[in-house]
Design a protein around this nucleic acid. Sequence first.
RNA 1: GCCGGGGUGGCGGAAUGGCAGACGCGACGGACUUAAAAUCCGUUGGCCGAGAGGCCGUGCGGGUUCGAGUCCCGCCCUCGGCACCA
Length: 865
Amino acid sequence: MDEKYYPEKIEEKWQRLWAETGAFEVEERKGQPRFYCLEMLPYPSGFLHMGHVRNYAIGDAISWYKRLQGFNVLHPIGWDSFGQPAEQAAIKRGVNPRDWTEENIAHMRGQMKRLGISYDWRRETAAHRPDYYKWDQWFFLKMLERGLAYKRLSPINWCPKEETVLSNEQSSGGVCWRCGTPVERRDLEQWFIRTTQYAEQLLEDMREIEAGWPERVLTMQRNWIGRSEGAYVDFPVKETDERVRVFTTRIDTIYGATAVVLAPDHPLVTKIPGASALKADVERFVERVRQERAAGTGRTITGEDEAEKEGVNTGLIAVNPFSGEAVPVWVANYVLMEYGTGAVMSVPAHDERDFEFAQKYSLPIRRVIAPITHKEEPSGMEPRLGLDQSTEMTGATTDYGVLVNSGDWSGRLSEDAIREMTAFAEEKGFGEGKVMYRLRDWGISRQRFWGAPIPVIYCDGCGTVPVPEEDLPVMLPDHAEFTGTGQSPLAGVAEFVNTTCPKCSGPARRETDTMDTFVDSSWYFFRYCDPKDDARVFAPAKVAYWTPVDQYIGGIEHAVMHLLYTRFWTKMMRDLGLVSFNEPVRKLLTQGMVTNVVEGTGEWKAMSKSLGNGVDPDEMIAAYGSDAVRLFTLFAAPPENELRWQETGIEGAVRFLRRVYTMVWRWSERLSAARSAEADAPRSLAEPSMEEFSAEARALRRKTHQTIVRITNDFDELHFNTSVAALMELSNALGEFNAEPARASEADTYAVREALEALVVMLAPFAPHASEEMWEGLGHEGGLLGGDGARWPRANEDLARKEELEIPVQVNGRLRSRIRATPDTPEEELRRAALTDERVRSFTDGREVVKVIVVPQRLVNIVVK
RNA sequence: GCCGGGGUGGCGGAAUGGCAGACGCGACGGACUUAAAAUCCGUUGGCCGAGAGGCCGUGCGGGUUCGAGUCCCGCCCUCGGCACCA
């Protein structure tokens, strides 16, 4: 241990020792409480950025904290290594995606090791390796067996010039990102996962995780699933055999339906009788909307979000099954084929969109819901049904109320009418109650090379045949042609495509689409529990021991997709009998962005290359050490907040570490003297009695134990910034404890040792290398985790609490004085002390004391006349 | 529009209904130094005061309470998500 603090030497030393001793390598251990701490796995782009550093610093702090508390902590890492950038590198620079990916992983792994994150590196996984994606394929087959995976036509973005599939981002603005050609929509056979089958459970089970997940993430997922209760109602179409099925949440307003409106791509649109004069109109309209939608325009130029509502009359007539009324059938751009049935009943009086549409096209607006008003009666609030017929409607009223103009249903309350009318429709066979979701099935087909091949074979004789389990993995070929145009590059690899049918052994073709990378990341943390198993996806006992994840940490950008898919996947696995719980993650922490000033603008933006405001973690580590960088990222802001990167802040972190380090060094000789004294007379390390401590030492001990309480509580709440602040306070208190080590009494030395040891151990989650080094400096061998290993300090409750408080004394609510008392001073004594306090007496003198309010530990208030 | 989170010094941010601004950054003053850096000490919400101290102060307006940054009601501003979802 050196006198001076050299982060680079210390960090290198401990990183080496950790690796040599396998300090963070864990196995299942019955009888020891376990803790699974997980950070979202990174995409191997090539370089860590400060957002990664923040993510891993948080995870590492929690891991160390739990480890020091005696938990068996699983803290793994891996690579989300399939995906577009590797393929782009292949297209643009002709490199092999596998080589590119492996090189990036190697470099980033080095960066992580220099950060000193406490991972169990033996458990590292990477999605692009056959031993991982084999199990993606296995899961796919299991879902196929159970009807959870299926194939259907679905539109993709297509550039007609380059003849290639484009992602949504690549086709934004309706043109190809590379050549500017207008994008077409094409229907392709694609694979889907039936996530909708779990919609209700995904909502229901949120109850189990409510306490541990941020409210806004749950809200976003709830909105995404978008449950709404309503009913289907069938409207027969006159002079045809067709019926239009609509979905409505307001069946109580059906007597106000003055039209049925179809989405432009509704099947009935193609069935308008040929002779109809309106047919041409409709076709022209539908074609225009289709083009606008493909182009991503169809929105107003004024910057408003919604497009102008437009539509045409089809000439068809539908019959309201409740009223028997004949209403026109229109087609309009505001009805979406993707939701409900692609058809709605238009009730202008009670739906804002229908109202706007009806006004524009002069469709009748008929009010069928009247508001409930209340009038004051002596007996209380009496509901009074009122309908103000006189006022002209200036907008739709969407509130519940009382039905009017609704035949026999008039007079019913909306709530009751919805229930009763739905039952009536079911009874008569023209409708049924229905719960609708916004959630769509998950399309996993990607027309790309760099992903897990979908394990399916097409045979002319046998049709679609799943690859037999024993033939997995379906290996990605080593080479392919990366032109950036055409279909999936796999389609051009003959030895991949051409195969034999597993059923009939005849010639057959492989599916050339690969899986969405969200598949890989939906279950990776289960694989960490048993990453090398070749015979099965994992040993159930190992997963049962480690999962569910206790703490998951990652960016808010994954609030919906990844976190919803992974919740779905867990439920699917549960139904396969692989796990026995519903939810994969108990507690979720969504970290904020790391931002930096954009030169010249003064704006704080996420670090990025293009803005030139990026900070290189390697440079920071080289300049200040990993400990200081990590300490600062945890101290500078609460983890959920944006973190503004300020280099002067890291300097403060270095200063702090150096001060603590210097203090340990200053005392180390005295402490080791005390230690060897202990070897001679084993009594000397025992806690001295209270009287032996100097007043300063007693104050230091109080501070030490209060700090332990504070930091332990803060850690449980993930308040790292205040934990660091508390550590700094303790270090300041130690700094002010001005005893000369050589002359310090045994008792005072004890108090210093106690403070320093607590400080050093509680520093480990933030600055593990420095903490290890100082732990050694305090005379311990074998590191924090080995040898006579450290334990998270326990507070002595008495020492933490028993401090004199200053209790405010008020006279008639106005602060007049303070009296000193300990938390257990009896109420009576407080009252007496307050009344006899000199300053108080000068205010109460000669006046009658009416009441004395005593709130122990808090306040004494004296009310006088 | 709907849902969710916020508004506290120059800045990041602290405060189980109980001394607002912990801790840090920055700034200012001082010590050391030929000088600078580093380090150490002090000051740092505003106003008044030589000082002790006093008054004001947590987006705005009300309310509850002995006591409100914190709880309740009504606004304003802001960030994020969703949005023609029937």
